[in-house]
């Protein structure tokens, strides 16, 4: 049995505003094991970001319990690089906040920048580099803190389609190579099937778990782009599509 990294049991969360109470999450339970990539998919506004905030410890659930084994790294929808900082200063941000900038951590960052092709752009400002590079810089900023669990909240949805395919493939490979655990929120069913080992389908708000799919694809090269040709891909897609029950 693999080590459980995230354990959610009967989580619920209500938001309170003057206008009233919003039941965002009703009853969600699932586990994430070490090295596993779990996709979370569901209709918009159903509480996916809220769920990640709970895992990251930014929000306390109204009910239920969360156990997280290890450090969490969060990647948001936009890269949120600070435009007044150059790339180097941006990737150092998390370390600065945690007061852990030292020779070792800088060396680690230099390595990461080098490995992911950004070392020539260290002193560029975010608006001087492409969207794909910005997303990579944001990834390095998160990896610099050596998280055990990565939370990706529609981390690629601000990119154009081609870049999105390429970057998600790249990020997947990077994260698998360093054996991270990941929870990936996305709207894109194909992206979820391509990147994840398991997919949790949530219902409309208030979110409950509708179904959990184990993804087994037969392909030579298990990478998001490589496995899109797998024969099972379409079946998973159709099943999840039906499960989501989208009406427009």
């Amino acid at each position: 049995m693999r080590k459980v990294m995230v354990e959610l049991s009967n989580i619920s969360l209500n938001y309170h505003t003057i206008k009233g109470e919003t039941e965002a999450i009703k009853d969600v339970s699932f586990d994430v094991c070490e090295g596993e990539f779990v996709g979370v998919i569901g209709p918009s506004g159903c509480g996916k970001s809220t769920l990640l905030s709970i895992i990251a410890g930014l929000l306390k659930p109204s009910n239920g319990s969360v156990r997280v084994n290890g450090k969490v790294g969060y990647m948001l929808q936009k890269d949120h690089l600070f435009e007044w900082r150059n790339i180097m200063q941006n990737v150092l941000l998390g370390l600065e906040i945690q007061n852990t900038v030292n020779e070792n951590s800088i060396k680690n960052i230099e390595d990461l920048l080098e490995r992911y092709g950004l070392s020539d752009f260290k002193y560029h400002y975010p608006n001087q580099i492409s969207g794909g590079m910005r997303q990579r810089a944001a990834l390095i900023r998160t990896l610099a803190l050596k998280p055990d669990i990565m939370l990706l909240d529609e981390a690629f949805s601000a990119l154009d389609y081609q870049t999105r395919l390429a970057i998600s493939d790249e990020v997947w490979t990077i994260l698998k190579n360093v054996k991270k655990t990941a929870v990936i929120v996305t709207h894109d069913i194909s992206e979820a099937i391509a990147m994840c080992d398991r997919i949790v389908v949530l219902s409309k708000r208030p979110a409950v778990v509708k179904n959990i799919y184990e993804i087994h694809l037969t392909c030579d090269l298990r990478s998001p782009i490589g496995c899109r040709k797998a024969p099972e891909f379409k079946e998973y897609f159709n099943e999840i599509w039906k499960e989501l029950d989208v009406h427009v």
């Binding site: 990251a56 930014l58 969490v72 790294g73 969060y74 948001l76 929808q77 936009k78 949120h80 600070f82 941000l93 998390g94 600065e96 906040i97 945690q98 803190l145």
Partner: peptide, 20 residues
């Protein structure tokens, strides 16, 4: 979301002020 990002790093309110 910029503030949320800093919070995921564990930033204090003072750090949110000065860094962001």
């Amino acid at each position: 979301d910029k503030i949320k990002l800093l919070k995921t790093f564990g930033a204090t309110k003072f750090q949110i002020l000065t860094k962001c």
